[in-house]
Design a protein around this nucleic acid. Structure first.
Lengths: 154, 154
DNA sequence: AAGTTTCATTTGTTCTAACAACATTTGTAC
DNA sequence: GTACAAATGTTGTTAGAACAAATGAAACTT
């Protein structure tokens, strides 16, 4: 499975692409790699990455309900149809949705006990993947790269 | 449009997330950012990013036809259904497909003159986006980050 | 040389994403 | 208070992705 990327890997490492393109390609390829690894770690728990991300956002609320726009603000990808994503979580019993009483346009979404329990099981798996992926990097490397990435998005 | 990411951006920059997660999140968010920017640059030309990537792969063959598996090896994402992606290019007149004579299981895909002309128009737009995104980084920064990304995928 | 395995691609199906149009509630201006 | 605009979600539709099964061609085995 990883061998399938070999050819592109070679291009990235040896070719004389313009630097900016090499970086951009490197980021895209690495993001894909991370997604694959995380998705694999989540597979035993029958949950997709977007669903997992929403669940973590809900947990991050620490009991305070989130409405849809809050979730969208915190998602990594734009997620045009968050409604149906939340539907999925609800149908799995991992989240709940109530119409907000003070502003009935809004909707209050919370994570259920089952959702929290699921995250407790997935956390170690995802943490392990993340730790393994960065095993060759020092703390300084990580800080440095993170800062450079922030510069790109400025 | 960029304001919508503020909340997540804040998390990334200020929060005390574990370093490995901060890096992983940073890469994913940046990859999304790049995709958005490039897609925007390609919009006037009515071509999606996957289609654009295939076209560039075909051009990189310098006349030598590519078969499907070659294309897949060079794509950033796994692309389960490359057949239909190439169909799209063909229906737009940007690529051609012939059955390989020496091994009739294979298929030979080439870029057409129209495809090349399209790329000549998109190149400056995409180059500009890439240059603009890396404007705050030095060559050393880029090399350094690229190497770190390579380490992650090892 | 007939049968089995492997290779390269295609096709079918199901699920998700993107985009736009719609609905409903709230806020504001007369 | 009625009218109009803005905020917040939902739904419809269309296109693309994921996965598995199927097709057809070449290679291997005995």
């Amino acid at each position: 499975m990883l061998l399938e990327q070999m050819k592109l890997e070679d291009q990235l490492k040896t070719s004389n692409l313009p630097l900016a393109r090499k970086l951009s390609l490197g980021i895209l390829v690495t993001a894909n790699y991370i997604d694959d690894r995380v998705a694999e770690a989540l597979k035993p728990f029958d949950i997709s990455i977007p669903q997992f991300n929403v669940l973590r956002i809900l947990r991050g609320q620490k009991g305070k309900p989130a409405n849809l726009s809050t979730i969208q603000e915190r998602m990594v990808s734009k997620m045009s149809n968050t409604t149906r994503l939340v539907d999925k979580l609800i149908s799995k019993g991992l989240a709940e949705r109530v119409i907000c009483e003070s502003n009935r346009r809004k909707v209050e979404i919370t994570i259920t006990k089952e959702g929290l329990q699921l995250l407790e099981k997935t956390d170690p798996a995802v943490d392990a993947v993340e730790a393994e992926m960065t095993r060759n990097l020092t703390e300084e490397d990580i800080e440095y790269v993170t800062n450079c990435l922030n510069e790109i998005r400025k």
